[in-house]
Simulated assay, not measured.
Amino acid sequence: MAASRSTFGALLRAWRDRLSPADAGLTATAGRRAPGLRREELAQLAGLSVDYVLRLEQARAKNPSAQVVGALSRALQVSRPERDQLYRSAGLLPPQDGTVSTHVPSGIQRLAARLGDVPIGVFTADWALVWWNSMWSALHGDPSVLPTAERNLARALFGNGAARATLYSIQSERGQDAFEASIVADLKDAASRYPADGQLDRLVQELRAGSDAFADHWATQTAAAQHTTDRKTIRHPEIGDILLDCDVLIVPGADLRMVTYTTASGSSDEGKLDLLRVTGGRTATARP
């Protein structure tokens, strides 16, 4: 086991050194000596503490969870074989075929990172948020403050936990009922394609038991449209209401959804989005 922990730490260090800050969506400062990501940058991208990443690299931390290994593999933009190697070196089984994949291909991460002016979030087939940029955090609030299991759109809409409590008000042009029905339709589709995924099954059972609205949508025999393009008004606590075009781009071969928000050029909403870009979602009067 000690040898496995040492291998895990060595892989983290080697793959951190090879990833350029630009490809990770970070700005490289002058006088930078690190060949790749700094340890604190990896911690930021993975939603972990710097001390924990240090202990993992030095083989002083034992038994990282599957969620931690998944977050690190996405932050490091590793290939699927490398991801599996990282899981095995942590003493874990790699994600199995037939379950919802949380792997985000490095090319998708680089593409999203280079569109830094656009709020982008990447979701899995069960609407779990697995990647986002700083503009997404500015628009919706920082997902890293939530437990990993709560970073899920279905839980934000229908659950009773932190995700629902922290979600900014979002109004769909198609109506809230249609928006909610489309998310349930997506989960139904995912459940039919991943019947062996225990985590997805637990999510569905939890929401069916805890939300009458979810249970009603799940029970309906009428096929709802899946969630794609929409116009949404987001009630931001500092900027106010922002009307945005929301587009859902499907990533072929990866079963991922890349959600983007844009505004019409020259509109007042474009100005609000520019303000978010500058302030990170915090105005001068915002409390710390």
Rank of each mutant, 00 (worst) to 15 (best):
N152C: 13
V53K: 03
L92D: 06
D241C: 04
W131V: 02
S268P: 03
A181L: 06
N63C: 02
D126I: 04
L45N: 10
T148E: 15
T229L: 10
F179G: 02
D216H: 09
L48I: 05
V204W: 07
D274G: 09
T124P: 13
D241A: 14
V53W: 04
R16W: 04
V259F: 00
G31K: 04
K62V: 09
S268D: 10
D177G: 07
I242P: 06
R202K: 13
G141I: 02
Q96P: 01
Q58L: 06
G121Y: 05
R83V: 04
P64D: 14
S6L: 04
I108P: 00
L48E: 05
T102K: 11
R88G: 01
G159P: 09
R164L: 04
I120K: 10
W15N: 02
A30H: 00
A254R: 03
A3R: 03
P143F: 13
F158I: 15
S65P: 09
G159R: 14
V130C: 03
A30P: 00
A286K: 02
V100H: 09
A196R: 14
T228I: 01
R151N: 12
F158C: 15
L157V: 13
G141T: 10
T233S: 08
D216V: 08
V78D: 11
D186P: 08
S265N: 13
P195C: 10
Q205S: 14
R174I: 05
F179T: 03
G98N: 02
R202F: 06
P64W: 08
K62D: 11
R18C: 00
G161S: 14
T166Q: 15
H217D: 03
G36S: 06
G240K: 07
L45A: 15
Y261R: 00
K232G: 06
F214E: 10
V184A: 12
S192Y: 02
